[in-house]
Design a protein around this nucleic acid. Structure first.
Lengths: 136, 136
DNA sequence: TATGCACCTTCCCATCATTGGAAGGTCAAG
DNA sequence: CTTGACCTTCCAATGATGGGAAGGTGCATA
């Protein structure tokens, strides 16, 4: 199976497959005589694993760890859970930051008439006329 | 006021102030004889505006628009509100994506015993044994 | 067989906002 | 006059991905 088919099958673009190989996330693919990369079912499995991990927002380094844990039949589920919960915490932190921005901005927008007149609490707040505040 | 003091006063790093100048977000600063950049209160104001906008997650291009709107005394508050609400929508989209990742992963972690045994639904899910699913 | 087309290869560059660092100039205090 | 803190410009890296150029490969069809 050449790289385009592998990309199609796994949802990882050919570009990214080559990239993952370049950074050592996946082993160098076998090559045909033509120098084309050649993928087997084990490779597809690994790429699918990576795609699903990326869909969950894991970074490349976290995925590297997950791949090691996957390959290690003797790992404890505790190790995996620890990694997963750490990532949940990262996600929570990101969500909290975005939610705070969202709340502040929505509050400002709510206070803005949004009509033809120039007076606008959003701009005023950005201009520093008053501290950024939002309802808690 | 030289760049370090301006950075200190506005919470925008000296690196970023130079960068904002390079990309035309702010006008080129005045120079002293020493070729050091020299900032006045209007500049500090603008940098503070930019920092607050960035704290709300606005992109550089959005900030460029906001600066124009700020400078335009005849703008309608509608224009500002439109921009702000568009950004609220972007934030909501990001939050929704992260929240879905979070829910899926938290569900998997919840189903994982996290003990010494190797059996782990998190890894199994990533490995594609079962479709990623989470409680709605 | 030749030609065309779809695919592959490597390599370089761009994104976005930010940081780091090197090499060198300026300024004030000791 | 030296030291150290500041400034200058320029180049490079981050993380994950995409775009594209220049050239090789494989297969079907005129």
């Amino acid at each position: 199976m050449q790289i385009g088919e592998a990309a199609e099958a796994t949802g990882v673009s050919a570009k990214m497959i080559r990239h993952y190989e370049a950074i050592g996330l996946i082993p160098a693919a076998d090559r045909r005589q033509s120098n084309y990369r050649d993928y087997g079912t084990a490779d597809l499995h690994r790429l699918g694993f990576i795609r699903r991990a990326r869909d969950l927002g894991f970074s490349i380094d976290e995925i590297r760890n997950l791949l090691h844990l996957w390959a290690d039949r003797d790992r404890s589920s505790r190790d995996v859970k620890t990694l997963a919960l750490a990532h949940v915490a990262e996600l929570d932190a990101k969500i909290a930051r975005l939610a705070e921005m969202r709340a502040t901005l929505a509050h400002l927008a709510h206070c803005c008439d949004g009509d033809d007149r120039p007076d606008c609490p959003i701009i005023e707040s950005l201009a520093g006329a008053a501290p950024l505040r939002h309802a808690h």
